[in-house]
Nucleic acid binder design. Structure first.
Lengths: 110, 110
DNA sequence: ACAGAAGTACGATCGTCGTCAAACTTCGAT
DNA sequence: ATCGAAGTTTGACGACGATCGTACTTCTGT
């Protein structure tokens, strides 16, 4: 039973790249994912997000977010769980996520 | 002498759109323009920026920045001056410009 | 009046990215 | 063992955007 659920590669905080993070966050669907994660208490499975795209497109978006360092992914059964890497993002780019999830920004993205 | 220098349209703070602002800031050349403006004491003419693109491309970038509300443009002779709309951006999206111009972000963009 | 400096406008090109459908894999439950 | 749920992978397609060169406009200085 070769684990399909092998944890996908996650970048280290020291490798976070602003350009890559911004490219990830510029897409409304991905920003919505981040906002929903930020508002949630627990980690969320891919399928539980309120996004209007196909499954394959969703997979693509999660991959972009993961590779940018914005989320951490791990399997629970067949479900892929997603966690916002808040602390690490704050360490690399202080205030960035706050600026996007707080105030008017979040309201409009909602 | 019909003024070619008619001031181009500038959006009001109340019309700033996060999506548009992010789309403007995701481009490295435009982010560099913002960074250079932020680091400068005075307003800067288009031609004085350290960017590696043609004049027509530069014009395009300045237009995108202006329409997003990030800069204010006005003519002085044949030179088009550019001013960062810091206060207004801070009002609309608190912390956003700070996050991009300060700390590691600015260093890497530099 | 003319030449040059500073930008703008207009197409055209070229790459990248978001999107989807279809086929596939993996796990859990029956 | 089988079926369904949850994602992934792999192309393909279409749209948008960054880029450039060329032609054009406007102002300044001489």
């Amino acid at each position: 039973m070769g684990l399909m659920g092998r944890t996908p590669p996650h970048p280290d905080v020291s490798q976070f790249d602003l350009q890559q993070v911004l490219e990830a966050l510029v897409d409304p669907v991905r920003r919505s994912i981040v906002t929903q994660l930020d508002a949630s208490e627990e980690d969320l499975a891919c399928g539980t997000f309120d996004i209007a795209v196909s499954k394959s497109t969703a997979t693509h978006h999660f991959k972009v977010l993961r590779e940018a360092g914005l989320i951490r992914q791990y399997y629970v059964g067949t479900s892929r769980m997603n966690a916002l890497r808040r602390a690490e993002m704050d360490e690399a780019f202080p205030g960035l996520l706050d600026a996007l999830t707080r105030s008017r920004a979040a309201a409009l993205t909602r």
